[in-house]
Design a protein around this nucleic acid. Structure first.
Length: 564
RNA sequence: CGGGGUGUGGCGCAGUCCGGUAGCGCGCUUCGUUCGGGACGAAGAAGUCGUAGGUUCAAAUCCUAUCACCCCGACCA
């Protein structure tokens, strides 16, 4: 492809609304443009990469017996009501105004609809159906460019089995296929145990990429390989020590002391001697959650333990409920339900808020002073604490979810009546699994992991082109002639070439564009080299430059691309 | 949905406090000189100052409303 006529609008400056690296580079390299918040157009160069990602996914899905569908994004609302997911998705579901349609955010319902009455016998099972299709979700707050959009491209797959063993096998197939897909895309990722959330089902795992732009937290142990979403990771850190003598409760004036850190400094005590209070509203009733020191509440665990509706209390509610502001709340004289983290079970001589602004209490013995207290594992795991599997230290970091695989069970087949006859002639709901990959995220994560200060660094097989051919001074006939010849030669050798044939652009500009676009190899053709019958090959990833004789170029390029 | 911020030519921004009819850099067009790391000179094109209403002799600037986008939080199959 000739750059002079291609639509690859590169930008010299960072777009003002982009913050994370992948977003900045996607826009600067002319791969995407924003149409509206969370809605992006893929330009030719970006779409070329998306097609390559899709092709890898297709190959691996087909390899496990997957069959590709193309389902409508426009769905009758009725079918979503049958599974109660109009309510479950709430505002995230896009509704069509002038007809009872919704824009599909995922396709369990529609796939199950097609399975119903067609997969009638255990002999018809198992099946793996998939599609690569645009999904619509009315995200409250789209962010990070293409990583969290209102419209995005997703590969979604569904398995249909007659037995739980069959589901296990289908799930395993997807697990292996996903590893192959992400390996082939050149991504560094983790597979973590996850919460099934509103999807329902018994087991689920996420494929995660470590990134500061991520919205999930992953607990990872480099010693034994343990990895889990922090939402579900168990905390195994030890309980606080119990002193031999429990002091009596005493009140201390602590003016302007709001945080645990300030309290520790003020009283010259250790974090472990303090109990932090967080107030939540559970089904319209206040509940105090007591944590040790600076431990954070794991709200997923809290939600699971309490059930119903749980949310943090607003600041104005705090004063109404406790009589004090956020920094001075505590369990003593608190007249609603209190639960505490397991770590505090043995605690005595603890410091906590007095439910009176600018006062704290010391000498609290939870067993003595709050006898009705219930203890649960409520703690959000943190870096440095012992791994639940091998007791070595774990690391907690932010991550982006690339893919998620679920054992769904029979939730959708039951509510939509997708039944099959077993060997005994008895009706049974089909046992399902569902498996997703965000293609936009694969693209963005690749760039997050492969860039430098000059731009993107592409490697096979996702690279849009293999080589970037740069003609330095296109006013010189010998340069033009040499470039044209190489362009033809490379193309006939099935090497994908982006050819910078612009004759009105300075050399420096071309170099910068080439580094920004980031093809694995740059072939630089200039007068200087041509005198020696040679061109320069630059390896984008390392910056290494090699002078190559013209008649050895194709061989050398093939060779370097193999190695890449 | 709560908090904060920003909307001025294609892109990045100044001007807004203190009202006087719009400017800078990049890009774009034409001509010339340059030509291996984002060139130089000359001439030019391009902006309802997000939108609507109001105040005023006069509004990018002040007031009111509204929309869009970004960041933090809430939410997140």
């Amino acid at each position: 492809m000739r750059l002079s006529t291609a639509f690859i609008p590169t930008l010299k400056e960072n777009p003002s609304d982009a913050v994370i690296t992948s977003h900045i580079l996607l826009v600067r390299s002319g791969m995407v443009r924003m149409l509206s918040a969370g809605i992006y157009s893929y330009l030719p160069l970006g779409y070329k990469v998306m097609k390559k990602i899709a092709e890898i996914i297709r190959e691996e899905m087909d390899a496990i017996g997957g069959q590709e569908f193309h389902l409508p994004a426009l769905n009758p609302k009725e079918i979503w009501e049958a599974t109660n997911r109009v309510e479950a998705f709430g505002d995230t579901l896009f509704h069509i105004k002038n007809r009872d349609y919704v824009l599909a955010p995922t396709h369990e319902e529609i796939m199950t609809f097609h399975a119903k009455g067609v997969l009638k016998s255990y002999k018809d099972l198992p099946q793996i159906w998939y599609q690569i299709q645009t999904k619509f979700r009315n995200e409250a707050r789209p962010r990070s460019g293409v990583i969290r959009g209102r419209q995005f491209l997703m590969k979604d797959a569904y398995s249909f089995d007659s037995t739980n063993e069959g589901l296990d096998a289908s799930y395993e197939l997807h697990d292996k296929a996903y590893r192959k897909i992400f390996d082939r895309c050149g991504l560094k990722y983790f597979v973590v145990g996850a919460s099934s959330g509103a999807m329902g089902g018994s087991k689920s795992e996420e494929f995660m990429v470590k990134s500061d732009a991520g919205e999930d937290y992953v607990a990872y142990c480099s010693n034994c390989g343990y990895a889990a979403n922090a939402e579900v990771s168990t905390s195994t850190i030890g309980s606080v020590e119990r002193n031999e003598i429990s002091k009596e409760i005493f009140e201390i004036s602590t003016p302007n002391v709001k945080s645990i850190d300030e309290l520790c400094k003020f009283l010259n005590i250790d974090e472990s001697e303090t109990a932090k209070s967080r107030i939540y509203i559970h089904n319209n009733n206040p509940i105090l959650v007591l944590m040790n020191g600076n431990d954070e509440v794991n709200e997923t665990k809290l939600q699971t333990i309490l059930g119903g509706e749980v949310r943090p209390a607003h600041p104005d509610e705090l004063e109404e409920i406790t009589g004090a502001e956020a920094g001075s709340i505590g369990p003593i004289n608190f007249n609603h339900r209190i639960i505490a983290d397991l770590r505090l079970k043995t605690g005595n001589n603890l410091y906590s808020g007095a439910n009176k602004n600018d006062f704290h209490l010391g000498g609290i013995d939870l067993q003595r002073d709050v006898p009705q207290l219930e203890y649960f594992d409520l703690r959000l795991v943190a870096s440095g604490e012992p791994c639940p599997k091998c007791s070595k230290s774990i690391e907690v970091f932010k991550a982006i979810e690339l893919g998620h695989i679920f054992k769904l069970g029979t939730k959708y087949s039951v509510s939509l009546g997708a039944l099959f006859l077993d060997e005994n002639g008895k009706d049974n709901p089909i046992i399902m699994g569902s498996y997703g990959i965000g293609l936009d995220r694969v693209l963005a994560c690749y760039i997050e992991q492969n860039n430098d200060e000059n731009g993107i660094i592409w490697k096979k097989p996702l690279n849009p082109f293999d080589v970037h051919l740069i003609g330095l001074n296109m006013k010189k006939d010998e340069v033009v002639n040499a470039c044209e010849k190489l362009f033809t030669e490379l193309n006939t050798n099935n090497i994908e070439v982006l050819y910078d044939d612009r004759n009105n652009v300075q050399a420096g500009f071309k170099f910068s564009d080439a580094d920004l676009l980031g093809m694995p190899l740059q072939i630089i053709v200039g007068e200087r080299g041509l005198k020696e019958n040679q061109v320069e090959v630059k390896i984008r990833a390392t910056g290494e430059r090699i002078n190559v004789k013209l008649d050895e170029l194709i061989k050398k390029v093939k060779n370097l691309l193999e190695r890449n």
